[in-house]
């Protein structure tokens, strides 16, 4: 081995044993800077996202959209934008919404999402028809346990599963209840989850009652769920923040085409610049790590 080979090998060796906090710092900067100085890129919806969007958009008018908040605060960064986008889509098209949670920690997130989106629409509303009203246009059934009680019971009678809604109001007394009695009145249940709950919806609700299931999932689980998309058990799927961004884009295009005055903040789309930069940084890290590995291995040989 020549002296220059040794020097080169030493450099790569040191680079491989660099304090991991330098890696942390690079990741922090790579994600932060594009958030402050974004490069506007329009996401294009992939088939799993556009399938879900089109189904919800075109399902019969009287069918409600059910959103199951099956995620908890730890994955809310990825999944919460999906809930917001789905609620906006439903409210913008005048569709009734029923929201529930199979996770106790999902309740607060569902409440936040409904409060935010309802106020976005109500701020612009000029008539009663334009407004989005709790108990009339949407209902937050809340949470119950165990999950199979919810999934099977909703196919029979929803008010038996949720005698009171999240706010403690008797569900039988709500004006929306005669329109959403059980799965027959629901077009699709979209389960947004960081766990395998969407599969439980398929196993319990779909197998027994034939209800359509849509899935919003963390990117970690998304690759595993393609097999359920392929079999048609999931009508569509939003995979991670990217899936949420694509749904936001489809909705923005639809609202723009309809000349809607709504201008809504799109958090997932805003994140795409950082996501791009971070992916490139990770790839660079892996490439550098591998070059170092092969150079030092050759040096040792």
């Amino acid at each position: 081995m020549t002296a220059s080979d040794k020097t080169r090998s030493g450099f790569w060796d040191r680079l491989q044993r660099i304090d991991r906090r330098w890696v942390f710092l690079v990741i922090w900067l790579v994600v932060m800077l594009p958030l402050i100085f974004p490069f506007g890129i329009k996401p294009k919806a992939m088939p799993p996202v556009s399938r879900l969007f089109s189904y919800i958009d075109t399902m019969p008018e009287e069918k409600a959209l059910a959103i199951s908040i099956d995620y908890t605060p730890d994955t809310q960064a990825e999944l919460h934008p999906m809930t917001i986008a789905l609620l906006r889509h439903a409210f913008a098209t005048g569709r009734r919404v029923g929201m529930l949670s199979t996770q106790v920690y999902g309740l607060g997130l569902g409440e936040e999402a409904l409060r935010q989106v309802a106020s976005e629409f109500n701020e612009k509303a000029t008539t009663h028809e334009d407004s989005v009203i709790n108990g009339e246009d949407y209902v937050f059934w809340g949470w119950s346990t165990p999950f199979l009680t919810v999934m099977l019971g909703m196919g029979e009678r929803i008010t038996n599963v949720f005698p009171v809604d999240y706010y403690g109001v008797t569900t039988e007394s709500l004006p929306i209840t005669p329109h959403i009695k059980n799965f027959n009145d629901i077009g699709i249940v979209v389960s947004i989850a960081g766990s395998s709950t969407p599969l439980s919806w398929v196993a319990y609700a779909q197998t027994q009652f034939g209800i359509r299931i849509g899935c919003g999932t963390t990117a970690v689980s998304a690759a595993d769920y393609y097999t359920y998309l392929n079999s048609g058990q999931f009508t569509g799927m939003l995979a991670g923040m990217r899936g949420a961004a694509e749904y936001e884009q489809l909705l923005a295009d639809k609202l723009a085409a309809a000349g809607s005055p709504l201008s809504l903040r799109r958090k997932a789309t805003e994140a795409m610049s950082s996501q791009t930069a971070a992916h490139l940084a990770i790839i660079v890290f892996i490439v550098i790590g591998n070059i170092g590995y092969f150079v030092t291995r050759r040096g040792k040989q």
Binding site: I36, H80, T218, A219, V220, A223, A271, S274, Q275
Partner: peptide, 26 residues
């Protein structure tokens, strides 16, 4: 190939969680 797909998407997921916190802080 399946595990590679899962890894690629796991990277995406973890970065998204960090982006969410930075969106709050910034």
């Amino acid at each position: 190939v399946g595990f590679g797909a899962s890894f690629g998407y796991t990277v995406m997921a973890r970065i998204s969680l960090f982006i969410g916190r930075l969106q709050f802080l910034l």
